[in-house]
Nucleic acid binder design. Structure first.
Lengths: 340, 340
DNA sequence: TCCTCCTCGGAATGCGTATTCCGTATGCTG
DNA sequence: CAGCATACGGAATACGCATTCCGAGGAGGA
């Protein structure tokens, strides 16, 4: 057993409450000689307060729950870094849950956080639409609703959710701006690698992109695929396979940078040069792109800051607040037209 | 306030212990109709057990502490993914702490974990030698020692530590094998980007590399630098600046892939082609390299598996065990010699 | 000098749960 | 039908700590 406050008190020759007052911030400060005696005893015994017991009586655990789909994905790990920074500032400990895009695991994660009486929860991860997901999601939201009603905080990174704080990336707007920028550069032929059907983030980006195109009289085909490097790879391969040989390849807009990277790999494998034979654009501007060649055109999202802001909103306690994360187009070599 | 077991019991018309027996696995199972009544009441109220209270009485928190230097670094995030997988298997919740390579924050993180009475702790992060670090580290190890004496588990990813479990990457051996492979390929001129002075991992890799070189009569200069992309960038820039123009550049061995990526960026900026004008090799084989061009020669480490194994060792309870993580040389284009 | 107010330690209590211990009711054996 | 074992629900308790309440002692004012 670890050292308890009572043991420290006993060694110091005082009562347990007195030891508590000395060691763990209290409104009352005992006399100097008592303080010293307790400090000495605690030091000698190597006392470390039991956070569980403190949480139980204080009804605050100093814990922050973070839900991500895949911590090895640099999109999420960058967000996690921002959340961590905020947590550090707020003196909170982060509990991490990885869901692998499984709504059931997502639900389980949130329940675990509630079970640990986390002070706040941040959910970074795209949402699903559709029946099956909606059912599980309903239960998840029920839980979160009760959670915030109990004076806890919850924030989502993604589309707004009724009653929760949110940091919402400008998916539609960013994708639309990208489409316009590409159109301005003279590109006319597009294919959207749109991610898995039912995924809100992918759908929004696809919608924003195609809507902007349509406004200028251009249409684009959509090719679904998993929201991963391999998903992008396979989707792109499919596109290339169907391509009439000799034709100029279209510009591929992958709704995610990791998909774009996969698409770039597929292009390389197919012997297509970027951007001469095929153009590629992504979304997110993950840090990996910094040294990726050729430079990938993308839409920048302040991921670290988004994590930070979400964690701050979740821990502010002032009800549900929403913020938008600005998306900015970043044009790089991968969409360069020969003319310009 | 959240729903308590007593409330559930009251609604179900039974006593609190009975409700406890129904809802949270006990040796005794109440009568079927009682079970049903309790289940129904719990469902109706949306009862979620208070993990803090359970931890207090069970003296097991089902928490696993993970210490990393930088969660946004794909080296650590990959390890974290492995730890998460193990935690999921063991039904543990991961608490994440980020230290930014600061020994003091490392100490604070471990104390927080102990304070939360984590069942196990995994420390992924290179260790420091030197006086200042040794002092803080001593206190850290004192804490961990008491921790494991209390029937808890602790594992380190990195050089072995007395009394703790460890997953130790073959730094020396891997770096030596890389040196030999490069020598075999005909390369003779090397510079080691050795990371920050005092960092054990960097030192080991540097030592393994130079020792293998020396065995075959080759010596190499060392250039220190931060263990990051920018650190590699700056170190490489320094090397290039000192390079007599027209000379063939040496092969740069960066003790970390992220440094190697930085070095590659510096090379590109300096107008040096890889591998024609300068060769570059790294260490770790982080996932980012998969689609990096040119393909970077490196030493592969099974990072995800290392995280997994460390977490398993930490939670096995069978005293301190050690494993070695195999390092395998991966030759790619970045060290191709024109002759071969 | 006496009374009041304030200070400061300690005893008691409660946080939510698991578990030990008891008492009662039931089933079974002889 | 008597006697005993067994099953099952509830009261009590402990986990480690913060906090409220109380009592004793001291300081200050009248």
């Amino acid at each position: 057993m670890a050292v308890t406050l009572a043991q420290v008190a006993s060694l110091a020759g005082v009562s347990q409450p007195t030891a508590s007052r000395v060691l763990n911030g209290s409104a009352r400060t005992p006399a100097p000689h008592v303080v010293e005696a307790v400090r000495k005893a605690a030091d000698q015994l190597g006392y470390i307060a039991n956070a569980q017991a403190q949480a139980l009586v204080r009804s605050s655990s100093r814990l922050l729950g973070l839900v991500v789909h895949d911590i090895a994905d640099s999109y999420f790990s960058t967000i996690a870094a921002g959340v961590e920074r905020a947590a550090e500032e707020r003196q909170l400990q982060v509990m991490l849950a990885v869901t692998g895009r499984d709504p059931l695991r997502e639900l389980a994660a949130v329940q675990t956080f509630i079970s640990h009486r986390a002070d706040a929860v941040v959910m970074a991860g795209s949402q699903w639409s559709g029946k099956a997901a909606t059912d599980v999601r309903g239960r998840l939201l029920d839980n979160l609703e009760r959670f915030v009603d109990d004076k806890h905080g919850a924030a989502v990174i993604g589309p707004r959710v009724e009653g929760l704080s949110a940091v919402t990336p400008e998916n539609r707007r960013g994708a639309g701006a990208l489409a316009n920028a590409l159109l301005d550069a003279g590109t006319r032929d597009f294919i959207v690698l749109s991610g898995p059907p039912g995924l809100v983030t992918g759908a929004e980006r696809t919608a924003g992109f195609t809507a902007a195109l349509k406004r200028r009289g251009v249409t684009a085909r959509r090719v679904p695929g998993d929201l991963s490097r391999d998903g992008g790879f396979e989707a792109a391969q499919q596109v290339f396979a169907e391509l009439p040989s000799g034709d100029v390849a279209p510009c591929l807009f992958a709704v995610t940078d990791v998909m774009a990277i996969g698409a770039a790999a597929a292009a390389r494998l197919a012997g297509l040069r970027i951007p001469e034979d095929v153009q590629i654009a992504g979304f997110d501007d993950i840090v990996t792109l910094r040294d990726f060649t050729p430079g990938l055109t993308t839409v920048h999202l302040p991921l670290e800051e988004m994590g930070y802001r979400a964690a701050m909103l979740a821990t502010e306690g002032a009800g549900a607040r929403s913020e938008r994360a600005p998306a900015t187009v970043v044009l790089r070599e991968s969409t360069l037209n020969p003319g310009s």
